[in-house]
Nucleic acid binder design. Structure first.
Lengths: 110, 110
DNA sequence: AATTTATATACGACAATTCATATATTCTTT
DNA sequence: AAAGAATATATGAATTGTCGTATATAAATT
């Protein structure tokens, strides 16, 4: 009979490293971090982001898609305007800690 | 004369989104998250990780390299053994929040 | 119905990542 | 000095990510 102890593979599944890694993927592009930064104070539509970042509309939409697919942002449609907002306030905490790590690294090596 | 207000590009530099994105890159692979998980309770050398994960030595070394290059872990050499440990305790906080986000997502969609 | 506005997707070239296999380096022991 | 142990790097094939350009969709307005 099979042991009750979970296998290594099952442990990995419980820890869901794969899903965690996917969420992290959304944070691996400077522009996507910038979008999250801009969403700190509430939802924005694509035109808002276009005005504030001066990047092309497809460029923005493509990165928004990654953020949504990986679960970092969510959307709300009103008429023909799509509003993007953070999917989870904890995303902000992550951004804060990451910024903090980089900041202290720089000030200590300065 | 030039304005004192920082340009958008300078704001991005101040926010160092590029460096933040690079740090995040280290967290985008399940196996690297697993390594960080294994380093929670203190430093480990490559053979330790080999025993605990059953993956090939080059596979492990390659991922350790990414973690080190992106600044997530640091190394200490003693004789011909290299010990890896978390570069910053805040890395653990990030892992914890990410795991938490995934966990609550799953339990709420259940 | 035609046009405009807001957003999304398709495509393709290019760059970057992953991972196995093979080999190199570095230190220790014999 | 030779062999062994621990770790790192090189190479290359396959996969994935990036981003500009062009096009599609969907709702609103004329």
């Amino acid at each position: 009979m099979r042991s009750n102890l979970p296998t290594d593979l099952e442990i990995d599944k419980i820890n869901s490293f794969t899903e965690q890694a996917e969420l992290c993927q959304s944070l691996t592009h400077p522009f996507r971090l910038k979008i999250l930064h801009l969403l700190k104070n509430g939802e924005k539509n694509v035109s808002d982001l276009e005005n504030q970042t001066k990047r092309s509309q497809p460029f923005i939409s493509q990165h928004l898609r990654v953020l949504r697919e990986k679960g970092a942002v969510k959307t709300r449609r009103e008429k023909n305007v799509v509003y993007y907002s953070l999917a989870n306030p904890k995303i902000l905490e992550i951004c804060k800690i990451i910024a903090d790590i980089i900041k202290t690294k720089q000030s200590s090596s300065k």
